[in-house]
Every structure is written in C-alpha cells, then in structure tokens.
Design a protein around this nucleic acid. Structure first.
Length: 883
DNA sequence: AGACTCACGTA
DNA sequence: CGTACGTGAGTCTA
C-alpha cells in the first residue's frame, strides 16, 4: 500500500515489457494497413494505461536499453550472447512506442553503456532517498534486489503482461525464501540461462537458499565452500569464479548519471493532438479514450472536441427526393432497407444533405429513372440491394463504389463485414447500431439516410487508402462481377426434388443396413457419427492401433481409416467408410432439397438460389453459401447422381458447362516464364504426359500412368507450397523418392522454382502479394519469428498470386459473358460459378451464340504467354453437361 | 443457444 | 509438414 501523503514515482523498463507484449499478442490482430506491426506498442501502452489508472503515480519515467552493448558485455563478452537476434519487427516498434510516450508527455530515459534496469535502480534509490514511494515495473528478475520498504516491484506473471505481481519485502521473502537484497546471491549461484550466465551445476533455488541461510552471506559461503560435502560441494568449489562473476554482473548500478532526477519527472498533461496523430497512424482506436482517461489531457472534458455531428435524416415525399436526386452533381450514397428480398425504405446522402423515404410501387416508379441512370451511386454491400431493386423491376446504373468490397480488397483477412466496422476503422467514429438482441433497443440505429451518409464518408476514406491497382480491381473487376452475381443469384438453378428424394431414400436404406452390420460386428449399438464413441470402438473394443493425434483424441478420418485397413484389415473399417460416404451424400442431398424454392421470386419456384459471398476469401475467389453450390460432389460415379438433379429449367433447352483446364498451372507458366512449361501448354500435348516425359526422360508415349500420377501430384502440389514430406504422403512413396522426384522436376522446370522463391521473397519485402491484375493480399507473418506462422504464411503467399490471378481471370470472363449475353438480347444466362467452371442455362435456339460468347470471353479474359484452354459440355443436367 | 472440433465435400 | 472455402453432427459450455 502506498502512503497517499507521499508522492509516487513509477519507473518502467520499457524494453522488457514491450518485448513480452510482442510475444503475448497475436501480430495478425495488430498490423496496420501499411503493414506496420503494432502488437508490442499496443500491449505496452495498454498495460501502462492500466498501471497509471491503478497506481496514480505523481511522477513517471520509462527507461529503455540503448543497445545490447553495456558495461556488462565489456566485462564478460558472453553476457546475453545466447539470446537470439531481436526480431526486426519488434525493434521497429520501439521508436514508434517512444513517439507515443513523447506524445503522452512521459519522459523516456536511455543511457549508453548501461541497461534500462540500471536506470531503474538509480531512480529507485534517489526516489526513496527523496521521500517517494517507488514503483519499479520490470520483467527482469534482477530488479528484485531493488525491493525495500519504499520500493515495490511490479513483475509480469506468467499469465502475461496484463497481470502484474506485486513484490514487497514480505512477498519476496515468501516467494524466494530470502530478503530482496539477497536475491542476486541466489541468482549468482543458480545462474541465469537467458543472460548466458552459467551457475553452479546441480544447484537450484532450493539449495542456494539453504546455503545462504546456513552461512548468512554469499561471501561467507564462498569463503567456507570447503565445508560443503558431496558432488554439489565440489561443483561449488569448481565454479566459484563463475559465481563471483555472476554476482558482479547482476548487481544493478544505482549511481548512473542521469539528466533528470525524480523530482523532475512529475506527470504533466499530454499533447492531445500528438496522441491523436500517432494513434491514427498506428490505427489504435479503442486505446485512444483509455489513454486520455489515464493521462491528463489538460482539457476540461466538457469543451473537448465534439465528434462529427450526425446529421438528422430528412423524411421527404418521393417527389422531393427525386428532385433532390436530380439536382445532385456529385456522388450520392444509397442505403436500401431490404426485407424479405424487397425494398422497404431508402435513404440517400450527399456530403451534407440527407433524404429518406418509404418504398412503394409509386416510389419505385418515380425513383427508377434515377436508379437506372449513370448518376454515380455509392453503396455499402450493394448486392442484396441491387437484387431487391431487380425484384422491383429496376436495373441499377452508375454503381460507382462499394465500401464493403473496398474494405475487403484493402484487408481481405479482416472480418469487417458491416458498415459500422468500416466506420470505426476508417473514420474512427462510432456509428449508432441498434442492439438486435433487445426487443426495445436502448439505442436507435442509424436510419437508412444516415447509413448512406456514413457510407459516403467511409468511401472517401477508403479511396485515400486504396492503392491504384487495387482501386482498379474494385472498379474494373469487382463491381461488374457484383452486378453479374446479383442476376445469377436471382436466377437460381433448377433442381429436381424427385431425383434427390429417390436417391436419398436409397441411401437411407443403405445406411441403415450398413449400421446394423457394423453393430453386429462390434457387438453393441453406438453412434457411428460420433468421433468420440467411434474411438472407443476402434481403439478399445476392437483393439486397433492408435492413429494420428487430434486435439481431443485420435483421428478417425478417411485417410487414417484407409491406412488402418491396410495394416490391420477389419470388416468394420470397410463398413464404417461406406457408412460415412453414404451419410455424407445423404446430408448433402437433404440440405439441397430443403433449399429448393427458398429465396425465389415465384411461389412455385423449383430452383436453388445460392448466395455468392464476394468477400468470402482472402485470395479473390468467391465463396458460396446457403447452400454452398461450389462443393457438390463429383469424384465418384455414384455421387454424380446428385449433379444429375441439377437440371435445365423450364423454358430453357440445355445446360452448358465451361471450364478452364489447368488454369492455375497456366498462370504459373505465365508468371514464371518457364520455357518448358510454356512449351507444354503450347504443344497441345496432355500437360502431365508432357511433364512426365521431361521429368522421367522418356517419350511422351512411354509415360506410364504411375509416372503421370506422380508428376500430376507434384505439379498441383507446387501451387500449394508442397514439401517432400507432403508429396510422399500423398503418393504413398518414400520421402527420399519424393525428394528425388522434386529434384528431377526442378532440373527440367527450374524457372518455376525460381519464380516461386522470388515471389515469396518479394512478398517478404513488400509485405503483400499481388495478382496479375493488381489484387493484393497482405502477409505480415512472413517476417514472424514464429516458424510455424512464418512457414504457413510462406505457403499461402506462394499460392495467393496464382489462385488470385485465376480468380481474377474467371471474374473477368464471367461478367463479360453476362454482359455479352444481355447485349445480344439472349435469354441464356449464367447460373453458377465453381472457381474454374461456369454453368449456363441456354434458351432454345441460342446454343451456338451462347457457346460462342462463353468460349470467346473465357479464352480472351487475359493475355498470357500460354493459351487459356476452355472445355465446353452440354446436356439436360449438370452431370450430363460435364462430358 | 453458441462456440468449438472433427470430418469431408469442392476447386 | 499443401492453398482456398462451407456445412453438419457431435460435444462442451454458458
């Protein structure tokens, strides 16, 4: 407890605490948009703010090391020599942290040749002499020696930086069994691995305490070391010099010459604007009020800067809204409230004026010309609104910006899926959001017009941040894609309930039979779908050998079961695998069946309308949900029966499928410029046969299917950053053979490896990868000191430009096809996109025209150094059309 | 009810 | 110890 009559001096070891924060906080959550890591800064400041609040110091200073060099390294060059290199991404944060502290008007102290803890020791001594209560905050154990009746140590516990343990003389005695000033004696005997100070072998804390208690002091102990028996006695005598050295080095200097004394460290008001500026740069938002709360701002809170005032929405008649819209010259932001797929209200905003009105047939008719005009319109998450307009008979024109897409393009890994997220991040403001869990919300959400106003301002902020290449991806690729997806989702795809239910019934009968057989074999009934119960049966009842470990037990996945079947054949395993397969298919069928007619426009709609999530991936791909139509089974003959339920719809003639063959390999050939690979694609030869011939040194006609399988796995694996280990596992070959395969492969296609290496290197420098069209994906982890994180990032970074470029190409083809079909007045329409495949519903008599458009636009979506090959199929259903 | 894990479908 | 996704069942926790 501090005596409130005395001033309190708080001195902090900035370096050691920031370092702990650096490892405690996940860097992916603390990286600015220009890839500055901020986890150490954030963690340190957060802890400091809590400390200031809790301890209310009257005087304060933060000490930093200047470099690794100090009088200790002069005396003993090995001091701290085993410490690994300070990660550069930590070092880079220190100057920024010091800038923050400067803005907060907290003195930063450093001194050449001594460590931060020596500064702490000096200030602690001076402080206690001058009548301060002193709080020492450090993550270095050596500071324990500073503790006395006036000096308290706050030391981070193992739980992390936020939990500080308070050491006064009593707690030190309890914890270490000695008085604080004796702690360095213990440490000298035990040694300190992290400082590369070896102690006496076999002597730990217990022995050291025992000796010190017995002999009273370290000097006495060393003097009479001959009295100690046994091996440890010998060890002590052998290492007396080490102990003396340790004791010399771990004594903190308390007479360092400093430019200021405790009295000059009085807490003074912070520089509010400077804090705002640097926090804006570091993208700290929630920390801002906490810091202002903790350090005096010198301002009366009443007259602090007002937040930007939220304009009141102006409820207007439709006629007024229309004339207002017609008078606008710049961009207008729009926010349409959609309920049950249809508009119910609509709000508009310019930079200063807002308009809002209810939706009705009359409103739709009156607003339609403006919506269909080229007048520039800004949305947040336009797709559902564009769909709602389409349902109301309005095809939007002039879509100029979508803040949701812009935010995603800038930082594809973030879950910023709502306007309020974007407002928080890019405007630093809180948008009013009604609490959806409350029946009677305490706070009203923003009205549509107010949302539009936030959208317009967020768009301006995002435009500032978006690099040109990314902005062009937004305008030239994503926005046209958005409009296409809206039509595809509304169109849906016809799916036959009859086909599905027949198949489901068959599978149901089969799963029942399989389960019964399985239970008979095991001798009891249990839930085959429960991994937990299954483990009991496999590893206890059936006594099969334990498999690969998972977080909660042992794996029972298909690959593991197949391995088991080979090593310990058991009829149960086969039944289980068949049961799994059948139940999985049945699940898929059921979920598809229950999706038929949902979200459709007509009451008797027999189609499935998926939702494409345009911001659903980090690479630029789409994802599909509710239901996911991008993972409909295809691999086995039987599973393809599900695809045969996807039929051509009423009023249409056939389905057309078109897919890119080996688009990712082609993109890799283009990006790497590998002559062999480029020749492979230009030769017209089967890719894997061509590559196999080169790798194995045979004629293409002599490539066996085993050879082909191997190079095929290798080629595909390349795109994902496959290792020899992974390749051997997949091909079930020895790791040495996999390694040899990779050597041979790269001997013939070396430019591919060079490209992949260079591409990751460049990403490491830039902090992001880029697709052919300029889409970026940040990779802060490429410089992580954590090997697992770093290597995962390397593989993802290797894959991102390839997968991302393929996604770009497909999007370009997709919206051009959509646009050409409409421009040619065809009824044929694109229904599905499955990453490298499109499914088109072709109207009677339109096959030739539609096929022509699809082929032309897919093949011509990008100019690469290899051709883009397109395979087209036709049929009454998706399965038939696939051939 | 919501979060998590496992397993598995696709490109 | 191969990238990118979404879904459903079981299970645990609040």
């Amino acid at each position: 407890m501090t005596d409130s009559a005395k001033p309190t001096l708080m001195v902090v070891d900035g370096h050691s605490l920031a370092y702990r924060a650096f490892f405690a906080l996940p860097v992916e959550n603390f990286t600015t948009k220009d890839n500055q890591h901020t986890n150490a800064i954030y963690g340190f400041l957060s802890m400091l703010v809590n400390l200031i609040k809790a301890e209310q110091p009257t005087h304060m200073a933060i000490a930093f090391d200047t470099s690794r060099h100090s009088f200790r390294t002069d005396e003993y060059p090995e001091y701290k020599a085993t410490r690994s290199e300070t990660p550069p991404e930590f070092k880079g944060q220190i100057p920024l942290l010091q800038d923050c502290l400067a803005a907060m008007s907290i003195p930063v102290l450093t001194k050449e040749g001594v460590e931060a803890d020596d500064i702490l020791a000096t200030l602690a001594k001076q402080g206690s002499e001058q009548g301060f209560d002193v709080l020492v905050v450090s993550g270095d154990r050596d500071t324990i020696q500073l503790v006395n009746d006036e000096v308290t140590l706050l030391y981070p516990s193992v739980q992390g930086v936020s939990q500080l343990k308070r050491y006064d003389p009593v707690t030190v005695q309890e914890r270490y069994g000695v008085r604080p000033e004796q702690y360095p004696d213990i440490a000298a005997l035990v040694g300190e691995t992290s400082d590369n100070l070896p102690g006496v072998p076999k002597v730990g804390e217990k022995t050291a305490v025992k000796w010190l208690t017995q002999f009273g002091s370290l000097d006495e102990l060393l003097e009479r070391s001959g009295e100690i028996k046994g091996v440890v006695g010998g060890n002590l005598r052998d290492h007396i010099d080490d102990v003396r050295r340790n004791r010399k080095l771990n004594r903190l200097l308390d007479d360092v010459e400093l430019p200021v004394g405790p009295a000059e460290l009085a807490v003074v008001p912070a520089d509010v604007q400077a804090i705002r500026d640097i926090f804006a740069r570091l993208e700290f938002r929630t920390l801002l009020p906490r810091v202002f709360d903790a350090v005096g701002t010198g301002e009366d809170p009443a007259d602090s800067e007002p937040a930007v005032e939220l304009p009141a929405p102006v409820e207007s008649t439709v006629a007024d809204v229309v004339s207002w819209l017609d008078a606008q010259e710049g961009e207008v932001a729009v926010s349409i409230v959609v309920s049950g797929g249809s508009p119910t209200r609509v709000g508009f905003a310019g930079l200063t004026e807002l308009r809002e009105t209810g939706w009705s047939e009359e409103a739709a008719a009156a607003l339609r010309p403006w919506f269909e005009s080229d007048a520039p319109k800004v949305f947040n998450d336009a797709k559902p609104q564009v769909k709602a307009l389409l349902r109301a008979g309005i095809r939007i024109g002039g879509l100029a910006y979508d803040t949701l897409l812009a935010g995603w393009l800038l930082r594809p890994s973030l879950p910023d899926k709502t306007l309020s997220h974007l407002v928080d991040r890019y405007l630093g403001e809180k948008m009013p959001v009604a609490d959806p869990t409350q029946l009677v919300p305490e706070t009203d959400g923003a009205t549509p017009a107010q949302e539009a106003w936030f959208t317009l301002r967020a768009a301006a902020a995002l435009r500032e941040d978006l690099p040109d290449s990314v902005a062009s991806v937004l305008v030239d690729i994503e926005l046209p894609t958005l409009l296409t997806l809206a039509d595809m989702e509304l169109a849906g795809v016809a799916v036959s309930h009859d086909v599905l239910s027949t198949f489901s019934a068959e599978l149901g009968a089969r799963t029942d039979g399989l389960a019964a057989e399985a239970f008979a074999l095991v001798g009891r009934e249990f839930n085959l779908g429960s991994p937990k119960q299954l483990q009991e049966v496999l590893f206890e009842d059936l006594q099969l050998p334990k498999t690969r470990k998972t977080k909660t037990g042992y794996s029972t996945d298909a690959a593991v079961l197949a391995d088991l079947q080979e090593s310990h054949p058991h009829p149960f395993l086969d039944l289980l695998l068949q049961h799994r397969e059948a139940t999985k298919l049945r699940q898929i069928i059921e979920s598809l069946d229950s999706a038929i007619g949902k979200n459709g426009m007509a009451p008797d709609d027999a189609r499935i309308h998926t939702t494409y999530v345009q911001t659903g991936s980090q690479t630029g791909r789409l994802s599909s949900t509710d239901p996911n139509l991008q993972n409909i089974p295809v691999r086995t003959e039987e599973s393809r029966r599900i695809r045969s339920a996807f039929e051509v719809g009423e009023g249409y003639e056939t389905l057309l499928t078109a897919d890119y063959s080996q688009i990712e390999m082609r993109i890799m050939a283009h990006l790497s410029g590998d002559e062999g690979l480029i020749e492979a694609f230009n030769s017209g030869e089967d890719l894997h046969r061509f590559v196999g011939a080169r790798v194995f040194g045979v004629e293409p006609s002599d490539v066996t299917s085993a050879m082909r399988t191997k190079v095929k796995a290798m080629s595909y694996g390349l795109v994902y950053g496959l290792s020899a280990f992974g390749l051997s596992k997949q091909l079930r070959i020895e790791q040495s053979e996999a390694k040899q395969l990779m050597v041979e492969y790269f001997a013939r296609f070396g430019a591919v490896r060079d490209y992949l290496r260079a591409s990751v290197m460049k990403a490491k420098e830039d902090g992001y990868t880029e697709t052919i069209f300029g889409r970026r994906r940040p990779f802060p982890d490429l410089t992580s000191p954590n090997r697992v994180l770093r290597e995962n990032a390397e593989r993802a970074a290797l894959n991102a430009p390839i997968q991302g470029s393929a996604a770009d190409v497909m999007k370009i083809a997709l919206f051009r096809i959509h646009s050409d079909l409409r421009a040619a007045d065809l009824r044929s329409r694109v229904l599905l996109q499955i990453h490298d495949e499109l499914v088109v519903e072709v109207a009677p008599g339109e096959w030739d025209a539609a096929e022509q458009i699809v082929r032309t636009q897919m093949a011509g979506a990008a100019e690469l150094s290899v051709p883009l090959d397109v395979q087209v199929g036709r049929g009454r259903d998706w399965n038939e059309a696939a051939h």
